[in-house]
Design a protein around this nucleic acid. Structure first.
Lengths: 236, 236
DNA sequence: ATAAATGATTTGTATGACAAATGACCCTGA
DNA sequence: TCAGGGTCATTTGTCATACAAATCATTTAT
């Protein structure tokens, strides 16, 4: 959501440009970057702005700086892979099936567990939010409304776990996956096909059945993964 | 590992100081921060350094800045909860059982799934690394060596999943939990008690049995959680 | 040959100035 | 009285310059 409009600040643009280069592979790990002054002039910004951007990239683990030595791209194992920006840059740079599979695998791990936790610990207000989201899905007339209610549903489930770490993880993964989804978004005639599975998740959470909730969520995700795969197959 | 020595850069210190204040609650969400110049003089740094720190905090989702309006602390749901620094600051600020439970829950979700994935997809070299780490645990004579081999073991399992997102998530969680562990670290006479459970994990991965690997890992974690709880109980 | 001193290069920090954005206020007109 | 627009003041955003600190490479002294 922060990246929808793109950053208007200069240092934001620089962060994005350099970040995409690094994550995209134009700048290989271990490779030294040009001196600050050279980079600044090459990107047509002041050294001040460039440095603010570099500090952000360093905070994301992408680069490291040392006096006299200069700056180097760090190895990928040091990157903050779960940072929203890093993830977005990877999505932009490597729209490979391989990476999508990794994202989907994360969802398959997190969401069933989250549903189970929600079934165990949800309070009535949180259940009501899940119910409201489900109802909104049921009443959705077009794809946009349905998609929006869908996110609301999953977010409501995540909130019901009372573990904001889970919620944060989900939202990051979900945002990354959304970039692929939007790429191939089209009005699908039968977008409501997964409604009963959503109901199963809701019902299990309502009845406080962790295992049932996890199973239902697994079914839900595997279904959505299948549609994702067919869409990807359609693309070429 | 990046935070072991503490940052000796000025902006690093400022990031840490302000970050701890925000995450610790001294600066409530929605609350406006002083003007840059005022903050800079109050912290005895130049505006340049302060701004570099502020950009980093903004990248972590902790604050937002707008011209004329100034800076405000963002609501907690916008924070990068999975950022290593944010997590560390939370650990420092709220050493409550509640938060430890959330971290442990993340491990309980991620690691069994990772073990299963490793059992499915590991290659021989990755299995060898797991085996080597296990052997190092077996040969460990003191607590330090054992602890180091323990991390190596879990990291080897995570690497064997071929999903670096999983690895990144684990390492962040593990680092956060380690702060609590170190706090109450003492030489425990029977630190080797979980060796057979580690062997069970290794064996299941070797035999490519995902379900068995997940189960073994669950046992392993629940055991370590119990010791964590007893240690916490001992503290007061 | 080894170790210490020196120099050069790059990032780190400080300062001052101006541009851009935007909320607040005032001023006008119906 | 209220609506609309325009001006002003304040705060962040950007730029330029100068110097400090660290450290690699070279040189020099023992």
């Amino acid at each position: 959501m922060a990246r929808t409009t793109g950053p208007r600040n200069l240092h934001g643009q620089v962060v994005q440009e350099l970040g995409q280069m690094i994550v995209g592979g134009s700048l290989a790990p271990g490779e030294p970057l040009p001196r600050e002054e050279a980079l600044a002039t090459r990107m047509a910004v002041s050294r001040t702005v460039l440095r603010e951007a570099l500090k952000v990239l360093a905070a994301k683990g992408l680069i490291e700086t040392r006096q006299k030595t200069g700056m180097r791209v760090r190895e990928t194992r040091f990157w903050n892979q779960l940072d929203a920006d890093v993830l977005a840059w990877r999505c932009a740079a490597m729209p490979t099936d391989d990476f999508v599979d990794k994202l989907v695998e994360m969802r398959e791990i997190v969401e069933p567990a989250a549903a189970a936790a929600a079934a165990r610990r949800r309070d009535d207000a949180q259940l009501a939010e899940v119910a409201a989201a489900y109802q909104a899905m049921d009443e959705a007339m077009d794809l946009d409304a349905w998609a929006e209610a869908d996110v609301r549903f999953h977010e409501a489930v995540l909130r019901a776990t009372n573990n904001e770490l889970l919620g944060s993880l989900f939202s990051v993964i979900q945002t990354a996956l959304a970039t692929y989804f939007l790429m191939s978004a089209r009005t699908t005639a039968n977008f409501r096909y997964s409604l009963p599975q959503h109901h199963a998740v809701y019902d299990a959470i309502r009845r406080r059945r962790p295992n049932a909730a996890a199973d239902a969520m697994r079914g839900l995700i595997s279904a959505s993964r299948d549609t994702l795969k067919t869409r990807r197959a359609e693309k070429p």
